[in-house]
């Protein structure tokens, strides 16, 4: 069994550019990566939001009504639905004056068991250090 851990680190805000959306779609693509790999090989994604990237994690996004595009909220919930570890930097959440009830902490409404986690930046650094590859979005 060979697993490679890829850390997807997002520090760009949502909607201003495509960047954070591409982070999410690439992370979720890990669910089908096995079709390109040998038996026993897989990729373990970890998705972490830091800096302005924590703004992707705001609840009640209205992009589908305003722009007619899927929300980053729906992508984050899909990531949780597919059991991707989602980490949100708690120092940066505080820095933006946000509270936990304003942040996507779970996706129970679509049947996900995996919650997201508000964690210190040091925890995210630990994930980065243990990753085989880092993708900085």
């Amino acid at each position: 069994m060979s697993i490679k851990k890829i850390a997807f680190i997002v520090d760009k805000m949502p909607y201003k550019s495509e960047t954070s959306r591409l982070a999410l779609t690439h992370a979720i693509a890990s669910q089908t990566v096995e079709i390109h790999l040998e038996d026993g090989e897989n990729v373990e994604p970890v998705l972490a939001f830091i800096g302005a990237g924590v703004l992707n994690c705001l609840r009640n996004q209205k992009a589908s009504e305003t722009y007619g595009v899927t929300t980053l909220e729906s992508h984050i919930k899909n990531a949780l639905l597919t059991d991707i570890k989602v980490l949100i930097c708690e120092e940066d959440v505080k820095k933006y004056g946000l509270t936990e009830d304003q942040i996507i902490m779970d996706a129970e409404d679509i049947g996900a068991d995996m919650p997201s986690e508000l964690v210190p930046f040091s925890t995210i650094m630990g994930e980065i250090e243990s990753a085989d590859h880092i993708m900085f979005f």
């Binding site: 490679k4 890829i6 550019s17 495509e18 960047t19 591409l22 690439h26 693509a29 890990s30 669910q31 089908t32 990566v33 079709i35 390109h36 790999l37 090989e41 990729v43 994604p45 590859h133 880092i134 993708m135 900085f136 979005f137």
Partner: peptide, 18 residues
């Protein structure tokens, strides 16, 4: 998923953001 599979077998990944 092709990109992630390529990363799996890569010795180094250089991810150049947009």
């Amino acid at each position: 998923d092709w990109y992630l599979a390529s990363c799996f077998s890569a010795d180094r990944v250089l991810h150049i953001g947009g």
